[in-house]
Design a protein around this nucleic acid. Structure first.
Length: 518
RNA sequence: CGCGGGGUAGAGCAGCUGGCAGCUCGUCAGGCCCAUAACCUGAAGGUCGGCGGUUCGAGUCCGCCCCCCGCAACCA
């Protein structure tokens, strides 16, 4: 059985989850669910990054121990993922003792390869904040919180020889042994590696007490890089030695574009240093603006995913966020756009389609199995296009293909006018429509699992119980198309059968409006 | 000359390897009556940022220019 491993970054528990976190995670979930439907052995990893000065400071501010602070904030992520039906297989936290031990072992391994050395970290230090500032954080050369110029400060710390990996990284990315997607981001990384010199990075901090103790020097804690990146291995059960999960290397590592560069340099360099395989693909998606403006806390226009769920429900929120723009590019969200899209795609098109067909189906007297004929060609083509889109991570294309299928079905209803038919031809037509709806529901299931589940249930297919590792929608390779037999007792994979011939459905139970207009 | 992305109908966007300019929403006119005032059909509306070039033919390739937006390493 082929496997599929997908990761999101681990999110910094410094703050509440916002729509950006939700975007990455929903996209990962859509892909995980899609691959499960295809019958692959899937592992979907997400989690939280919990060390560092900011956590310590905020915990103090809140009058909590750092661990209690992390527990509370990690819980906010877990809760949000629950309410969005995120089907992760593991939620890794960097304060997990197993993770910490593995990270320490990794440091020792790196040291044994002579890739760590003592040096001086130099930076602009704000005495008021008690921390180093980047030039970007400064306003007119001053700390924005304290209105004071930071002082140049040095401290001893340990470095990782990242510079040693420049040529090999360039070669691996250039040859697509390490795929970076989308193309424009890949170009950016290649340009960077060709023109700039990769510098060694400091991997410890002396002043930061909330972190994993650096095994070579107990005075120091491990800084974010080694700690956070290794979650991708420890989250799969790695304990710091040679043995590694069957799921590694990851097939796709998703992230927002802001952290692509470090994922395309520091992270693969670490893997190379540890003699571990590199991820197959690193994919960076874009940023959202809200009504044309950059989302930021100071502008107060950050979208709270919980608010979104309250407005549209979990399924529709997932759908709306993921289909807001081409995956990989920046996009803009606005309340109006969300309402528009919800009403046109989900209420008027999908929801209404189900209502009208299910109502007609109530009149069916005899419900015999008939193979799909009317829609076969179009549905077949749609699945092919859909698989191609999903493979390319073009989530918005997959959604568009689905919408086109809905349009096609709606048009067909106008021309066949089933409400005017009687007897056999009526029964037959409705059966065909239900079959088409079943395909549509399966197609969009990865995006909207809850609603689709209820649609499929009412058509006699209990997907939930076997949604894991069930070859239900076949492969993008037409020759290997799997069974489409959705009856509860169906065998897992019947590669010979056409997805339509073996398909069978029950007369639907009527449903309340799935997507009421808003 | 730092790197990258973008400028296409009233609004928001698609348009890989060049071949009669598309989608969603909105507007207008019709149809249908199974359905969530929904669905279907048709119409109006664009000199595809500007200038030049390659080509039988260019949003689509090349050059220059203008404007917008990200990134520019310790921000996860």
């Amino acid at each position: 059985m082929s496997k599929f491993c997908i990761t999101t970054p681990i999110y910094y528990v410094n703050d509440k989850p916002h729509v950006g976190h939700a975007y990455t995670t929903i996209a990962a979930d859509v892909l995980a669910r899609y691959h499960r439907l295809k019958g692959e052995d899937v592992f979907f990893l997400t989690g939280t990054d919990e060390h560092g000065l900011k956590i310590l400071q905020n915990a103090e501010k809140a009058g909590q121990t750092p661990q209690a602070f992390c527990d509370e904030n990690a819980d906010a992520f877990i809760k949000l993922w629950e309410s969005l039906n995120i089907s992760y297989d593991n939620f890794i936290r960097t304060t997990d003792p197993v993770h910490e031990e593995a990270v320490k072992k990794a440091v020792i391994t790196l040291n044994s390869k002579d890739l760590i050395y003592v040096g001086k970290y130099e930076g602009l230090y704000c005495v008021g904040c008690e921390q180093y500032k980047t030039t970007k954080e400064l306003v007119d050369g001053k700390c924005s919180d304290h209105q004071k110029e930071p002082i140049l400060l040095q401290e001893d710390c340990y470095f990782f020889k990242l510079s040693a990996f420049q040529d090999i990284l360039l070669k691996l990315i250039d040859s697509n042994e390490l795929i970076i997607d989308p193309l424009e981001r890949r170009n950016e990384i290649l340009g960077f590696l060709k023109t700039e010199k990769l510098e060694d990075i400091s991997i410890t901090r002396k002043k930061v007490k909330w972190g994993i103790k650096f095994p070579l020097d107990e005075e120091q804690t491990i800084y974010v890089w080694i700690d956070a990146f290794l979650n991708y291995l420890t989250g799969l059960g790695w304990q710091g030695d040679k043995e590694i999960s069957k799921f590694w290397p990851a097939d796709v590592q998703l992230m927002a574009k802001d952290i692509l560069r470090v994922h395309a340099t520091i992270w693969p360099a670490m893997l190379l240093a540890l003699d571990m395989p590199l991820p197959k693909k690193i994919f960076a998606h874009g940023y959202f603006t809200f009504e044309g403006q950059k989302m930021s806390k100071s502008l107060g226009n950050v979208i709270d995913p919980i608010e979104l769920i309250n407005l549209f429900g979990a399924d529709a929120s997932r759908y709306l966020i993921v289909s807001a723009c081409p995956f990989g590019q920046d996009g803009d969200i606005s309340k109006n756009k969300l309402y528009d899209r919800y009403n046109s795609d989900l209420a008027n098109n999908f929801g209404n389609l189900i209502s009208r067909v299910f109502r007609l189906a109530e009149r069916v007297e005899k419900f015999d199995f008939t193979p799909a004929e009317i829609f076969k060609e179009f549905i077949d083509k749609s699945w092919q296009d859909y698989h191609r889109a999903m493979k390319a991570l073009a989530l918005e294309d997959a959604v568009n293909i689905w919408v086109n299928l809905l349009n096609y079905i709606n048009k067909n209803i106008e021309t066949t006018k089933p409400w005017a038919l009687k007897g056999e031809s009526f029964n037959y037509t409705i059966y065909q429509l239900l079959l088409a709806i079943k395909n549509a529901a399966l197609m969009v299931y990865p995006f909207m699992p809850e609603k689709c589940d209820s649609i499929l249930k009412s058509l006699g297919l209990n997907l939930r119980e076997k949604a894991d590792n069930m070859a239900i929608i076949g492969s993008e390779d037409v020759k290997q198309k799997s069974s489409f037999d959705l009856t509860p007792s169906a065998p897992i994979l019947r590669s010979e059968a056409s997805i339509f011939e073996s398909s069978e459905i029950k007369k639907p139970q009527s449903l309340p409006a799935l997507f009421p207009r808003v």
